[in-house]
Design a protein around this nucleic acid. Structure first.
Length: 601
DNA sequence: ACAAAGATGAGGCGCTTA
DNA sequence: TAAGCGCCTCATCTTTGT
């Protein structure tokens, strides 16, 4: 076992990694400037924050503040030429120009799916458009301005520059100190400025309110609008309001969880025949994709997820309709919802069916028929002992007070009755069974780690039911890109459906989980190829292109990104989508977009 | 050093009641 | 309609024990 990965600081959360948002890469790769930039960086750049901070003249700082707002350098240069170094006037000119260029109706539907998707998206477009503008860099990089070059160079990945200098640079760019330091902390010392600014942008965007402009722009804008407002500003203001309005409507109609979480149907009660869903144009594959996360995320999270995944409405399903334990999850996918079929045999759906031996000891006043959500840790032996002692004081039925205490603990910790006055947590192999994994799937690692890995996994029957439509579409098997694979829930589901796994590209940060997956792969005598990565960041455009060249196109991109910062169980860092781990969602989006783009060529 | 145990609420929704 | 209550949640961090 790798201590670094499963040690005390992070345990073996499947998706534990330093998070870096490389949404920039989408654009970079999309517009083929990525390679150029990187090459340049490797050759000529000795960048370093030191070089930048010393060579960053006041003029370049002046330029930089507009660069980070997402304006093109040539536009900035022109605006400065016309207005001098007057911040207000330059910004005015730039914003007006941008407002004119950006009006959605006029957006030329040229380049890629990605671009049109982004431009059709309201709030997220504000984020992405800023970076889409970066394709200007391809041309203007050849500018002979030293200051501009040094600024550019700092955007490149650089390992040598020191932390504090970069942080200082971010602050110089106008980011609040605290946001800069959070970005530094989250992205790590090796992060490029692009990654850092990306992170800050993403975090800001993911926030509920006013996500469409960087914090540093808002006050300036506000100041200007409240101040000497000219007609240009008003034009811009109206333009922004128009977009903002779309977002507000979106907020008002925030996604609500259905009372009965059966999605587009469950094996016993199909509703898919009644509900015909139509997918947005951009959402239609290839490839098929399937994204999962906890249903009970903080407000607005599912709206953001949906917006980034082509405005597909999430399918909320509680696995209590598939097995004996609850598991409320949201799934965003572009799979057909007709003609699904369940895995056979159907798993037990009640506690008694799943654990017949408990029936003998189950008190009548414990009315549970199903278990609550299986989480990542279990009750201690001491707790079950306390319960036993509390029960032993009474012959027969304990008083209401004790019943309440015992039931509360049983619900909280998913305890089952295993003897007279004796409750116990589920064994790891029992959890495996409930989730649809083969027995001993996670055997060989510590008990604690088994619970953790299993608690972070799919419920196989539920996911397999959704994926079952792939079987007739791919009789010869499929190529799978599996992100945040964990212990291989997706692979097990496909395997149990009888869908041949031709090539599986699996990304999983935790070595313990990768070993489990590899072990399963070998035990089940898979004939296909399993290619493992340990970090989603490794999957850049070049890498994906190589993979597709070597192994063929992906038929399915599947994964559930970290829920750490979304789940209500987290009392420490329930930070939403911009949280340390949960922000890896944006890597799912990035990679899916890249795959779509590469495959469309 | 590792594994287990203990301490640590907020947030969101459904339901009842005034 | 508002307020109050009940219930549930892919967890994290520190301390203790072996």
């Amino acid at each position: 076992m790798d201590n670094n990965l499963s040690g005390e600081d992070n345990d073996n959360i499947d998706w534990d990694t330093e998070d870096e948002l490389e949404i920039q890469e989408i654009q970079d790769t999309t517009f083929s400037s990525y390679t150029d930039l990187r090459t340049t960086g490797q050759h000529a750049i000795s960048c370093g924050g030191e070089a930048s901070s010393s060579s960053v003249s006041s003029k370049s700082k002046f330029i930089q503040q507009f660069v980070v707002m997402g304006f093109r350098e040539e536009s900035i240069a022109k605006a400065i030429e016309q207005n001098g170094e007057n911040e207000g006037l330059v910004l005015d000119a730039l914003l007006t120009l941008k407002a004119l260029e950006d009006s959605p109706e006029e957006q030329p539907n040229t380049s890629s799916q990605l671009e049109s998707r982004i431009s059709s998206d309201d709030s997220s477009s504000e984020y992405n458009e800023n970076f889409l503008d970066d394709d200007y860099e391809e041309d203007s990089w050849s500018s002979d301005s030293d200051t501009i070059n040094s600024a550019k160079q700092c955007y490149l990945k650089d390992e040598s520059s020191s932390l504090s200098e970069k942080e200082q640079l971010l602050v110089n760019m106008g980011y609040p100190v605290e946001e800069a330091s959070i970005a530094m902390e989250r992205c790590g010392p090796g992060a490029s400025l692009v990654e850092l600014t990306d992170f800050i942008y993403a975090a800001q965007m993911a926030r509920e309110e006013d996500a469409y402009l960087p914090e540093d722009v808002k006050p300036k804008l506000k100041h200007m609008l409240n101040g000497s407002g000219g007609s240009m500003k008003r034009t811009l203001y109206n333009e922004l309001r128009k977009r903002k309005k779309q977002r507000v409507i979106c907020d008002e109609e925030t996604i609500r969880l259905p009372k009965h979480m059966i999605g587009y149907g469950i094996p016993t009660e199909s509703v898919s025949s009644m509900v015909k869903r139509t997918l947005p144009e951009q959402a239609i594959g290839p490839p098929f994709f399937y994204y999962e996360n906890v249903a009970l995320a903080p407000k607005g999270v599912w709206d953001t997820i949906s917006r980034f995944l082509y405005d597909i409405e999430p399918e909320f399903v509680d696995s209590k309709y598939f097995c004996a334990t609850a598991r409320k999850r949201g799934y965003v996918h572009n799979l057909p919802v007709e003609n699904r079929f369940p895995l056979l045999p159907l798993p037990p759906c009640t506690i008694h069916e799943a654990f017949p031996l408990t029936k003998k000891w189950w008190p009548s006043w414990d009315t549970r028929t199903q278990l609550n959500c299986l989480q990542t840790s279990i009750a201690s032996a001491r707790l079950t002992d306390r319960i036993r002692k509390a029960m032993e004081d009474f012959d027969g039925e304990p008083p209401m007070r004790v019943q309440k205490y015992v039931l509360d603990e049983c619900r909280k910790w998913n305890l089952v009755w295993v003897g007279r006055n004796k409750v116990a947590p589920l064994e790891p192999d029992e959890v495996e069974m409930l989730l649809g994994f083969p027995k001993n799937h996670t055997r060989g690692i510590s008990r604690t780690d088994r619970y953790k890995s299993l608690g972070n996994s799919f419920q196989i029957d539920t996911v397999a039911y959704h994926l079952s439509v792939l079987k007739e579409k791919f009789p010869d098997g499929i190529n799978v890109l599996s992100l945040f694979s964990g212990i291989g829930g997706a692979e097990v589901a496909l395997y149990r459906l009888g869908i041949r796994l031709k090539n599986v590209i699996s990304v999983e940060i935790c070595e313990v989980n990768r070993n489990i997956m590899r072990s399963w792969w070998e035990q089940t005598n898979q004939r296909g190829n399993l290619i493992e990565f340990d970090d989603v960041q490794q999957l850049d455009g070049d890498c994906l292109e190589r993979l597709i060249d070597s192994y063929g196109r992906f038929d399915l991109v599947i994964g559930g990104s970290p829920c750490n910062n979304l789940t209500g169980s987290n009392r420490v860092s329930r930070d939403g989508l911009e949280g340390k781990e949960s922000s890896l969602f944006f890597h799912y989006v990035r990679i899916l977009d890249l795959v779509k783009l590469i495959m469309s060529r």
